[in-house]
Amino acid sequence: MNVGGPAARVFGVFFPLGLKTGKTRALALLGLFPVLLAVVARIFLRGRSGDMAAVFTEILMVFFLQLYVVILALFYGTSVVAEEVENRTLAYLVTRPVPKPAVVLGKFAAYALLMFALVGVGLGVSFFVLNAPRLADPSLYLTFLRYLGVLGLGILAYTAFFTFLGALLKKAIIVGLIFGFGWENIIQYFPGSTQRFSLVHYLKSLLPYRPAGIVGGGGGRGVALLLFRLEPTPPLLAVLALAALTAVFLGLACLLFRTKEYLYEE
């Protein structure tokens, strides 16, 4: 069953639609908030580049990783299937010559690119504002790309998970909220391999910024909170784990959407 072409067509419809919606505008505004903070930090912490790095990491790690990416993935991930059912627009999609998995994949790709753009703009502008004095340093760009990569992987993994939840459950939002803001935060307090039962663990393992003595705490307050008791997974394994989880959840979502019958609430 060829899904590539049909998925691309679905992408072509939902990416422009996603750009237009009110929720995208509101989320884009939220994503510019770190830029505002970066400007404020530049004004109040001028000349202290060590503090700049710590502030950026706090903004990145605490805001982007623990809030923005999760919020975006929850909004858009559940929109892939659950919103179509809730709004009863599913009929328009499943009565087209498009295999059902292509609908999931196409919408997923459209929303993932959209989210990547939203995150990329906020991240990029805030990063370069805070690191303005060091723009000639090539290693800065590598660091930025690494941060972007982490958030990109986070977008893919979280969105795939919430897409799966949306395909499986009627009340996907609530479960997603509890997972994203409950489980993902609480799990860091668990020892040993328990931490590996979360997506955020692998993302944190990939972060480039690690102030001295960070494992077990230390560094800036935001950093300490985020890397609290982190027992990091080696980066390559973390990337593979995230890729595998993305593929598994997406595959399950496609399978569910193909085999499940969706009834509208009357």
Partner: peptide, 19 residues
């Protein structure tokens, strides 16, 4: 609801770190 609640917390933490 959750965004507002958590965002306010994160914002507060960040601003405390800066100021």
């Amino acid at each position: 609801v959750f965004t507002t609640y958590l965002f306010s917390d994160i914002l507060s933490g960040i601003l405390t770190g800066i100021f």
